[in-house]
Design a protein around this nucleic acid. Structure first.
Lengths: 335, 335
DNA sequence: CTGAAAGCGCTAACAC
DNA sequence: GTGTTAGCGCTTTCAG
């Protein structure tokens, strides 16, 4: 193990005090340009790297942002993570990432971890509404994205969300416009999200003068283990000619089950888009979330709050865009 | 801002010394169970969280692993990140993640960042071979995954890779078995990976008694900006009836271009699999990498090296699995 | 412009 | 069993 080179090493070698080295390296204006250059060169030569932990403990601030999400494999969270990292990096922050798989205890542990690491702020896609975030987070700035625990649990926090009601309403309306007559909804397991998306679904039906049928409003389990069965339930037993999957993981499950059912002309809808939907043999209508904008807004808002902790909490609602993916017939090779 | 509660606060409230609090919280066996319980309860009540930075600076170790990848949006890196986080978490480590977009300077910055954060170890999917990793990393343990800079640049480091030669050889052989006669390769921009995959391609052709044709061995730019054009080049101009995309991002580009060309019965191959390939209207053969195993091996090896820095560097080669995705005709809805 | 000294929060010897 | 003390590497007054 090479002897570690600290600021003391550099100071000794340069024949100056540690304070001067520190100043030189931090571009303090009050150090002679000549010494500054000399010290920097020396530090480079010695392979000196400042110890960020020591600095942070001294300055009482880190440039670490904690990001807590259910699962990076979920395309939505992949994209938001990238947007978060990009925006954070641009502002000089780094990202500590934790997946919770929707487990509340892992989320709680993750929050504790972020506090121990002295994260400057935390972005949370919450796994549920059982946690008392205000207590758990203490004074650490935090913003919630995508999921929103009931407002009374997160009174002090910003929330960056898509407009679920409007997005779903427009999505269902588009499915109806494309000829669907009886659209079942396979809803999300996330409570507030599900409530909002169901509301949008109802709004669209009401506008079209279609009566609700509770029998075709079902919910996925949070592990999606019932999606295949529910897909059959809606499309076969309940004779739906349209099916709205309330998030991308549910949509995946539906797409995977669909071939087994040997149906044709089913109107598919998905809240949230995926790039490869372009390649699907059957058409699908999606509400494409502005994921990058959500991530970016979350970071910007979080940093604003880090710099000004007394900012009044706000809820941001971004708008989804309705898209129809449809392959033209001659693009299909059945081989 | 609430006054921050440190170990000193707890000690004062409990009427004991900081040392005792520290011992109680760290489950030191030499503290009376009664006081231990009392202190823990008090710490909880006060909302005390140990400052991990202070601890790390004192103990000279962190439980942070740095992960440097080109782009988490690339499905391969999404999956490996998850595997890394899972394995790391299980061993008590956390993950600091940085995307480089294949930029060498950003990779270098990322390494510096990891050193400043005192990462216990680093996992790198290298953006290139221009960096002198040995110098840059100093004594920080590191393992390379997926990409391998030329061996002389990474003599002291472990490498966890897929068996590119064998995987490609088997992949191409399968395409030939399925009837392809003239398979073009749209190769990776990553140098060592490309070399190996080309070797495998050649091996398969040679075994089948097919002569090489340099005209149908082309490479993608690292931003894939020429993939559409090269797809046309191979399938139209060069009359290939098969096309091997050497990684998943290239495969995406090929799939996106394909419909424009109005071809039928093209034999598609992709090094690396994607879950949604199951939904494609045309068949595709893939070499599915054991991504989770790569990530897990990388972390295990890294941790082993953290604990035993003198471990001899090793290269691990995991085997890819050949898979054919084919939709049956009646699953296709042209609508 | 530079140095001396204090201290961030914690743990690890070393006492008692 | 518990307290005292020192010090990890750094920045920041305060002197000069």
């Amino acid at each position: 193990m090479a002897p570690k080179v600290t600021i003391k090493t550099v100071a000794a070698q340069a024949g100056v005090s540690e304070a001067t080295v520190s100043r030189a390296l931090n571009d303090s204006p009050q150090v002679k340009p000549a010494t500054r250059r000399r010290i920097r060169q020396l530090a480079q030569d010695l392979g000196y790297h400042p110890n960020g932990l020591a600095r942070s403990i001294r300055t009482q601030r880190t440039n670490t942002l904690g990001v807590i999400i259910p699962d990076i494999l979920n395309n939505f969270f992949t994209k938001i993570s990238r947007a978060i990292e990009d925006t954070a990096a641009q502002a000089g922050y780094n990202v500590l990432l934790v997946n919770t798989d929707e487990h509340l205890d892992r989320e709680a542990d993750a929050i504790d971890l972020m506090l121990e690491k002295q994260a400057a702020g935390i972005i949370i896609a919450s796994a549920g509404d059982a946690t008392d975030y205000a207590t758990r987070l203490g004074t650490t700035p935090a913003v919630f994205v995508d999921r929103m625990p009931p407002a009374q649990l997160v009174p002090h926090f910003d929330r960056i969300l898509v407009d679920n009601i409007r997005g779903t309403q427009e999505l269902v309306s588009e499915m109806l416009a494309q000829g669907a007559q009886r659209i079942g909804i396979l809803n999300s397991a996330v409570s507030t999200t599900a409530t909002e998306r169901l509301t949008g679904y109802h709004q669209a039906l009401k506008r079209a003068g279609i009566a609700f049928d509770p029998a075709i409003e079902v919910a996925a389990r949070s592990d999606n283990s019932n999606v295949a069965q529910m897909t059959r339930q809606l499309l076969v037993n309940q004779q739906c000619d349209g099916l709205l999957a309330a998030d991308n993981t549910i949509a995946n499950g539906v797409l995977r089950k669909l071939p087994d059912l040997h149906l044709h002309g089913v109107h598919l809808g998905s809240f949230d888009d995926q790039d490869w939907f372009d390649f699907l043999p059957q058409p699908i209508v999606t509400a494409k979330q502005p994921i990058a904008a959500i991530g970016q807004t979350a970071v910007e808002r979080l940093i604003a709050r880090i710099n000004e902790p007394t900012l009044a909490p706000e809820e941001f609602r971004l708008t989804a865009q309705i898209i129809t993916h449809r392959l033209t017939a001659d693009q299909v090779q059945t081989d």
